[in-house]
Design a protein around this nucleic acid. Sequence first.
DNA 1: TAGATTGTTAATCGATTAACAATC
DNA 2: TAGATTGTTAATCGATTAACAATC
Lengths: 220, 220
Amino acid sequence: MAKGNVSLSVIRRLPRYHRFLRELAEGGVVRISSGDLSKRMGLTASQIRQDLNCFGGFGQQGYGYNVKALYEEISKILGLGISRKTILIGAGNLGRAVTQHMDFSARGFELIGMFDVNPELIGEKIGGVEIYDSSYIAEFCEKHHPTIAILCIPKEAAKELAKVLVSHGIKGFWNFSHYDLAIDYDDIAVENVHLGDSLSILCYRVHELENSDEGAPAEK
Amino acid sequence: MAKGNVSLSVIRRLPRYHRFLRELAEGGVVRISSGDLSKRMGLTASQIRQDLNCFGGFGQQGYGYNVKALYEEISKILGLGISRKTILIGAGNLGRAVTQHMDFSARGFELIGMFDVNPELIGEKIGGVEIYDSSYIAEFCEKHHPTIAILCIPKEAAKELAKVLVSHGIKGFWNFSHYDLAIDYDDIAVENVHLGDSLSILCYRVHELENSDEGAPAEK
DNA sequence: TAGATTGTTAATCGATTAACAATC
DNA sequence: TAGATTGTTAATCGATTAACAATC
């Protein structure tokens, strides 16, 4: 589907296109031009057309793009809807919240088990999914062959555990631990969610704003 | 402190430098060269020196960088440690998990109140911080003057609420709602955390990996 | 001093934007 | 047909990398 290698910049914009298109479709919009979409998204029309043409010519001259069709195309490009057995490791506050907050199944992630080292949590069910003892992970993987792991554990544990999980067939990590998983494996997909880094960036930007305000009149 | 305007690419790398330097300092490492750090972080030495020199010359020829001093400098650049009154809106699973999971005070965020529309939650305390009724937000802001808001609410609510919060003095948003806040305000700092987009990107990358595997021998 | 490593300038690379012929 | 808008090529812009003189 993709014409050659698509840059990370483009890929990172795809989910946002997908989101806007879904909203447009839900709002009953049938067709949209790159110009119109660019205004809504705060991008240039050129960029939108360039991005989409990495994957194919989905538009029509003089018409624009069919919202629903384009939405479906991007769904396919993203690989949404392909079912993938998923496990979550670390059923603490964050792990449980993520489980309850995200619609995993909408993106094809089928959560089949959660794991924790805390004996108090073991046996509990969150959204119908049982929490098992972490020592059972290897055996569980051999039995059920999950391919995705969500890591909500401290960084010390993550580093060691990642190796074990890879050796048991995990192909993708959604990593919430404060550890950059990507460095060690390049034949494995890793998406890091560094909430701490994100909060630090907010901090910088508020700080920056305060400094630029000093003396300078409010811009608008 | 900053020499002119620093690009977003550089800023987004700062928290990661900060994280690595803290770990090095904790590990007892006193000095480090850009070359050594580049290997650990998977960057080029050139990039590290370029990035740091946006803010000042923190190194010394022939020696490298003093780990602790550089860590402190980046802390200052990021504006960590400046106390900012913070409120959290939406004390559902995600909001409560974020509260318990993040060390807000380490970055100067002082959580002074949480808000929710769910009557069952009102009056409850999470980590010593009380959950109030959302209808009390405006009054609370007038009284306590928070400058940061963490949004853990549905996107419909976020759009409307953001306006209200801005009019009551909020300068920075940590936005977990599925809504791109940045478009409307550019004199306000916004850091969006789109967990759904992040999961979609993981989906794409796993998908891409599977496709590149087909036929091609395993790379390594 | 000699070796190491920075800060900084120049070269390269990649991503974004502009332009426009093709065409619905 | 005329107007609109794409797909795509070329131009620009910005970010990364390389190189090296300065200097600890």
